[in-house]
Amino acid sequence: MSQLTVNGIRVDDTFAEAFGMRATALTITAHNAAWARQAAVTMTGFATSVIGCGCEAGIDCVLNPDETPDGRPGVRVLLFAVSTSELQKQLQNRVGQCVLTSPGSACYAGLEAEERLKLGNALRFFGDGWQVSKRFGDKRYWRVPVMDGEFVCDATTGLSRTAVGGGNIIVMGTTAQTTLAATELAVEAIGTVPNVIMPFPGGIARSGSKIGSKYKGVTASTNDAYCPTLKGSGNSALDADIASVLEIVIDGLSSDAVAAAMRAGVGAILALGPERGAVRIGAGNYGGKLGSHHYHLKDLLP
């Protein structure tokens, strides 16, 4: 594979291939920032990949009290799924089981769009007849009595059909420590970009996958070309000096947001340099035939 070298780091002349997805956003608030975060973390747990979790979800940003509808500390979370019906199901189950149950929580639409998903309209039945609808202007809320007061929730939230899932950066280094250091730095940089999430643990996936498997019925399997312990097996994409590979997967509410996130991540890795960080950067794709969004690394260099 042809490569560029920037600041001593090899950059593959390749692209990340991403897919159109359905997405929504929520603002979760609570008495304090810790409990708002707790509700968000619980709700976005087990949401690393649509392959096995039904959706991909994560925290977009922390919100100050003056940025939330009820003036309390909050967190904005994003959810992505492959279909509107699956997104609706995941939204309802996750808010119902993880946010409604969290002390002092309230949940609001985090995305304004013409198309809507049911939020409080689906959860209100927990109130068993004691729920109350309240409309202020064009906003409609549901108030559901719970044991610590009331769970307040927007009736609906916005649906985006132009979201993108699967932007990615493959980070390759000579040791596990330097590779992780470079990837952590990239995750931190991407964390400052609005409207994107990195759904894997801490934003990082160590088990990147390829489509399909030798086993019947298995839809995804290990990306053996990037496994350093398989170097020499004949199918490896890794150079002799690569001993560790990590991947950052990025979902965004728009293609521009994903591109901005990848640019921030690549920039952070390149700035760190090869001695303390990665020696090579790549990206995952499927030959360009499956996903409609292509992010070429050479276009994302600082």
Binding site: D70, G71, F136, K139, E150, V152
Partner: peptide, 13 residues
Amino acid sequence: VHEFVTNILMASY
């Protein structure tokens, strides 16, 4: 007597 989140939303409006 309670503190109501709804009343904060009402106050904003």
